[in-house]
């Protein structure tokens, strides 16, 4: 693996992409796929940040407190996110577009606030159970968990994404993947075609949560510190931006979107200070002018035609104005 990675990093370093930057690009690519899955099945869910938090905390506790190896913690974090997705998805996925968006934002906030108060809640539960004052400290509220071992390595992420890419290509050629696409186009008709819409949506929601959980475990073992603030509404919007920038017509889109958006402030140094402004502009400009995102041939050719028309139209003498 190093034989490939070292030359790759030698190419990327001069443009500002060091190994840690590359690692975050790859983690965010996983998050891009997480939101892509739900969007591709017509569900506008902003829950990925919340599931990422669950994965990150469970994974970090498993390696730090129980000395599990990374791969086991990874499975643990993914499983935790997936299990929690079941009771969340069953009631919420009946909601559609804006309502689903609001509900999943609410879910993310509940997760954040629960993490903030987890130790206090646990302490008061234990106190009432045991009848005496109990002190409880595990995840440290707003201060977060510190000193997580840095176990994630670049090749883990690359391998994970390669496997994921293969699974996604197969998904689109399977019954299940076609059912997802049908539901996105017209949920009612999909049901009339014999597709169990509730089942498919819930499965997709779980898969999306599992991926977000994986991204959480990986990132916790890169950053060494995790705090609930890192998984709030801002993170949910960042993840959405990956999908919007890259486009969701193929699974490549959100991966490209995630990597470009993550690398941008590093490559274009002067952007650092204006990072927030830039992120806002990207969302706004892409959704208005390039609705299918970067990875969307049809969108580009439409834009190209429009620009072409504007150019050929303006110098034409027949307009007569200036």
């Amino acid at each position: 693996m190093d034989a490939v990675l070292t030359p790759l990093l030698d190419i990327l370093r001069p443009i500002g992409i060091t190994e840690p930057v590359l690692q975050f690009m790859l983690v965010n690519a996983i998050l891009g796929v997480s939101i892509y899955l739900t969007l591709h099945a017509g569900m506008f869910s902003l829950a990925s940040a919340g599931f990422m938090a669950i994965g990150a905390y469970v994974g970090a506790l498993l390696t730090q407190q129980s000395d599990w190896p990374l791969w086991a913690a990874l499975l643990g974090g993914m499983a935790a996110a997936g299990v929690i997705a079941v009771p969340i998805g069953l009631p919420t996925l009946r909601l559609r577009d804006i309502y689903l968006a609001i509900a999943t934002i609410g879910f993310g906030e509940v997760v954040r606030v629960l993490i903030l108060n987890f130790d206090d809640i646990a302490a008061s539960v234990l106190t009432t159970l045991q009848g005496e004052r109990v002190r409880f400290r595990l995840i440290e509220g707003a201060r977060g968990i510190k000193g997580i071992p840095t176990l994630t390595e670049t090749w883990h992420l690359i391998l994970f994404l390669i496997v994921l890419g293969y699974l996604l290509t197969r998904l689109h050629r399977s019954r299940f993947g076609r059912a997802m696409a049908a539901i996105r186009q017209d949920e009612t008709v999909a049901a009339n075609m014999g597709i169990n819409v509730v089942y498919v949506k819930n499965m997709v929601f779980i898969l999306s949560a599992v991926l977000a959980g994986a991204a959480g475990v990986f990132s916790a073992h890169l950053t060494r510190i995790i705090t609930p603030a890192a998984f709030g509404f801002d993170k949910a919007v960042d993840i959405l931006a990956f999908a919007v920038l890259g486009g969701t017509s193929t699974w490549i889109g959100p991966i490209v979107g995630a990597m470009v958006l993550t690398a941008m402030p590093e490559v274009l140094r002067f952007l650092k200070e204006f990072r927030g402004v830039f992120n806002g502009l990207v969302l706004l400009v892409v959704i208005v002018y390039l609705p299918g995102g970067l990875v969307n041939p049809a969108g580009w050719s439409r834009l190209w035609q429009r620009l072409g028309r504007a150019q050929t139209a303006s110098p034409s003498p027949s307009t007569g104005v200036d």
Binding site: F44, A101, L240, V282, L283, L284, V288
Partner: peptide, 10 residues
């Protein structure tokens, strides 16, 4: 909804 989020961030 997305464009309004973008505008908010901006």
């Amino acid at each position: 909804l997305i464009s309004s989020i973008g505008a908010a961030i901006l």
